[in-house]
Amino acid sequence: MTQTFTLDGREIPFEPGQTIIQAALAAGVFIPHLCYHPEFKPHGSCKLCTVKVNGRHTASCTYKAAPGLEVQSNTEELNGERRTLVQMLFVEGNHFCPSCEKSGDCQLQATAYELGMMSPHFDHFFPDRPVDASHPELLLDFNRCILCSLCVRASRDVDGKSVFALAERGIDSHLIVNAASGRLADTNVALEDKAVQVCPVGVILRKRKGFAVPIGQRTYDEAPISGHLPLAEEC
């Protein structure tokens, strides 16, 4: 007999060991997220996937599905909290969508649209972070990093290289390149690496590829992020 839990009044089937977000996405129900990836161990860092389970807030990427759970996700309260988190991400980094090569393919931008974000609300930090153009094929723009750690986990767990890492803590936390020089050119990163493919924003970019696909024809130009399902098998 198939086991189920209830998500926003809908019965969601799940397999033993699945988390709430895994079961929801497999069933075609979108839960906003940025740091979740089906190939990596759940991290729970972005908190966008927070839901209410039997009335208590929890990250749906780490909470195991169980029979009879009453889960709320698509509510005014939770979407308002998610919108605030996204607004904070926009002001903590330098995210200028009209001039960004990732516009239309950016999960942060698409999530902001999905949540109805109309303004950043908070004062911009305008951080002064470096741009690393040392690698012949790749460009790193640290100004756009949202600390999701996807590239860190991909490089460590999939590529087996540990090219990237997060340094410091709290507000001083930032992405670094694991090389004595701090330059991407002095690592063994390759274009086919998983770490190069998973960035949800515009930090890791391939050189000479910017704007190859015209604005209006990009991933989230054609359909909102909630329309790209099943996300359980995508970045």
Rank of each mutant, 00 (worst) to 15 (best):
A179I: 00
A65E: 07
E222A: 12
H57G: 11
L48Q: 00
Q107N: 13
V51Y: 09
E39F: 00
A23C: 02
L166S: 09
I20S: 08
G9M: 10
A133H: 11
H135Q: 08
I31T: 04
R156F: 04
N188T: 11
Q197R: 01
H33P: 00
A154D: 05
E81P: 07
L85N: 15
C106V: 04
T19E: 03
D221A: 07
R208N: 12
R82L: 14
Q107P: 02
P42E: 03
Y36W: 14
L115R: 13
V177W: 08
E77D: 14
C148I: 01
R153G: 06
F30T: 08
E77P: 06
E76N: 11
K102H: 08
I225W: 01
T219L: 11
A195H: 00
V86I: 15
F5M: 06
A190R: 14
P224T: 04
S99L: 13
M117S: 06
I146N: 07
S103H: 09
G210V: 00
R218N: 04
P224F: 06
S173L: 14
A165N: 10
T187E: 02
G182E: 05
V131E: 15
M117P: 01
F122R: 09
L115Y: 08
L150A: 08
R83L: 15
G104N: 06
D123L: 12
V158T: 05
I215K: 14
V189G: 07
D159T: 01
A212F: 03
C61V: 04
A212T: 03
E168G: 07
C49V: 05
K47C: 12
L85V: 13
A27V: 08
A165H: 10
N94W: 03
H95A: 03
Q18V: 05
G28N: 01
F125N: 13
L115V: 06
R183T: 03
C35R: 01
G104F: 03
G9P: 04
E81G: 13
K64G: 02
H43R: 10
L140S: 07
G216D: 07
K41A: 11
E234A: 14
F125G: 11
L229C: 09
Y63R: 11
A65M: 07
A180H: 12
A179H: 05
S99R: 12
T50I: 12
G104P: 05
G44Q: 08
C199W: 00
A195Y: 06
G202H: 00
P230K: 04
C151V: 03
L139C: 00
R56L: 13
L166F: 14
S119T: 05
M1K: 13
E11D: 12
P42T: 07
D132C: 12
G55S: 10
